[in-house]
């Protein structure tokens, strides 16, 4: 009998492609955001509001991850920006190898900001690096206070959490201050934004943050 020591990370292949993607984004001075959440928390609605506010200020592109449909991509196309659809055909997350060929369908030279809307799932996407610059998780107040404790990885690995559906707060048992404290216990550097995509509330600080990151990336890339 032979014993073979490996110590190879299971995600090594993914991480190698993620590094290639990241290198390309750096070369193009393009800021890439990975948007993650459970289904129904409002990722696409947040994306719509964000596009509305930023499309006059920045050149935007979107990659839509969906298991089977093109429903979200159709919603985004209406804004007249570049959209590429990835159907994962059953897979519960996007990985770097799915994103890489989708990049060929976008003119990266003509973009300032690329937003990747991941498959609706609070568990699996957190494990896969796509080569993005930042990760934003969406959590709606209707989902309940226990979500950070149940799904810590996605919040630990994110830079931003958008707390959505704050217009529903009076109708839920959600204690939003406690929710924010719980998120900060997992990751004290998290930037938190309270928003309502439905009523278009609270978006200005979020889009300002995003615009700052885009400009920072451009400067960094130009100085290299």
């Amino acid at each position: 009998m032979v014993k073979v020591r490996m110590a190879t990370p299971v995600l090594q292949q993914n991480d190698e492609v993620a590094r290639e993607n990241r290198k390309l984004f750096r070369k193009k001075g393009l800021f890439v955001l990975n948007l993650m959440s459970s289904p129904g928390s409002g990722k696409t609605s947040i994306l719509e509001r964000t596009i509305e506010k930023l499309s006059s200020r920045l050149k935007l592109g979107v990659i839509e991850g969906d298991i089977y449909t093109t429903k979200d991509a159709e919603r985004i196309e209406k804004f007249g920006i570049a959209v590429v659809q990835i159907n994962t055909a059953g897979a519960c997350h996007l990985d770097a190898r799915m994103v890489q060929p989708a990049l060929d369908d976008l003119d990266l030279n003509d973009l300032d900001l690329l937003i990747v809307e991941n498959v609706g799932n609070l568990v699996c996407p957190a494990e896969f690096d796509l080569g993005e610059d930042a990760r934003a998780a969406v959590l709606s107040v209707a989902e309940g206070n226990d979500k950070p404790a149940k799904y810590p990885l996605v919040f630990r690995e994110s830079q931003v959490v958008l707390i959505n559906k704050i217009d529903l707060l009076p109708h839920t048992d959600c204690d939003i201050d406690q929710l924010e404290k719980d998120l900060k216990l997992i990751n004290h550097q998290l930037k938190l934004f309270r928003v309502s995509a439905r009523l278009d509330q609270g978006f200005e600080p979020w889009v300002q943050w995003l615009e700052e990151q885009v400009n920072l990336k451009k400067k960094l890339s130009a100085s290299q």
Binding site: V4, T8, P9, V10, L11, E127, P152, R156, I186, H188
Partner: peptide
């Protein structure tokens, strides 16, 4: 999953282990 130091209460905590996912040997 509370990343707060029990010694000095700092939230500035690095994950030292718990993120492993690898084949050790076969």
């Amino acid at each position: 999953f509370a990343f707060v130091c029990p010694n000095c209460s700092s939230p500035n905590v690095r994950i030292a282990s718990g993120r492993e996912l690898y084949i050790d040997y076969y």
